[in-house]
Simulated scan of single mutants.
Amino acid sequence: MHPPSSRNAAIALLTALFSLAAPASAETELRVCADPDNLPFSNRNQEGFENKIAALLADDLQAKLSFYWQKQRQGFIRETLGAGHCDVVMGVPHGYERVRATPPYYRSGYAFVTPAGRHLDISSFDDPRLRDLKIGLHAIGNDGANSPPAHALASRGIVENIVGYSMWGEESQANPQGEIVSAVANGEIDLAVVWGPIAGYFAKPYGNAIQVAPVPADSASPEMPFAFDIALGVRKDDQALADRLAASLTRKRPEIQAILAAYRVPIIQPIVGSTPSATDSVAANH
């Protein structure tokens, strides 16, 4: 075997250097942990606003986009992000202790959903009419009563007129998250207290027939948050990815805001930014 020519040696050297400098394939792929049936956030057809924002960020980062699908049940973070199947969760409350969060990209809260024609105009949990109205709530925890609205109503003894709706539904049920809004439109319940992005999205087909109004902080429990800064979450030790995503969020902010508006996500200003609230906890959708 003859020794390589100087030209071949130079090519070999450049190839070696390029292989060292080029990013690994994992670094050029944005692997997103997502629920396959959780509109308006995500679904397998990539119709949710988190799917759209993930595609926007992947394009900005010149990365291939892929989704790891898993139902958002107990253990979701551990079994997706923690198990290494994917690298980013598109919606976590800023300050959530199980992930490293980017700066938040939107802030939203709970909403009162009522039939516009009845002019209920509920604006507080202290409204005495709430004792007589049939109120819909999402049952989202093991006890079915752990959301801030459930606590606010229970603390006032408003429990007998509560109607619970599953956040997840049966496997065969399409868009179970929206059933509670349909119940308001159909007159099955008088009003619902719903996480804002769900309320805005599922009220949209009903046009002006459904009113969506923000829920203010509970005067009886001011320490309990009703609004949350929502961020992207990565593994705690993945500072590099968090930084790349944070920069991309900044660059693509106008486009992200347009996507949120198209999905009628109720936005609360200001977004707190990099300083999480001490009382932040997991919002209803995650």
Rank of each mutant, 00 (worst) to 15 (best):
Y110K: 00
F112Y: 13
F112W: 13
V113G: 04
V113P: 03
T114V: 09
A116F: 07
A116P: 00
D121V: 06
I122H: 06
S124C: 01
F125C: 03
D126M: 00
D126C: 01
D127H: 05
D127P: 02
D127W: 09
P128R: 09
R129L: 11
R129T: 04
L130K: 03
L130F: 11
L130M: 06
L130Y: 06
R131Q: 14
R131G: 08
D132P: 00
L137V: 06
A139G: 15
I140H: 11
N142L: 14
G144A: 02
A145D: 11
A145T: 10
S147L: 10
S147A: 09
S147I: 01
P149I: 04
A154N: 10
A154P: 00
A154H: 07
R156T: 03
I158N: 03
V159T: 15
V159S: 13
I162Q: 07
I162A: 04
V163S: 09
V163I: 06
G164I: 00
S166Y: 10
S166Q: 03
M167A: 15
M167G: 13
W168K: 13
W168F: 13
W168E: 14
E170C: 08
S172W: 14
Q173A: 15
Q173T: 15
A174S: 15
Q177M: 15
Q177V: 08
G178Y: 12
E179K: 15
I180H: 08
I180A: 11
S182I: 00
A185H: 11
N186D: 15
N186S: 14
G187S: 09
G187N: 09
I189G: 09
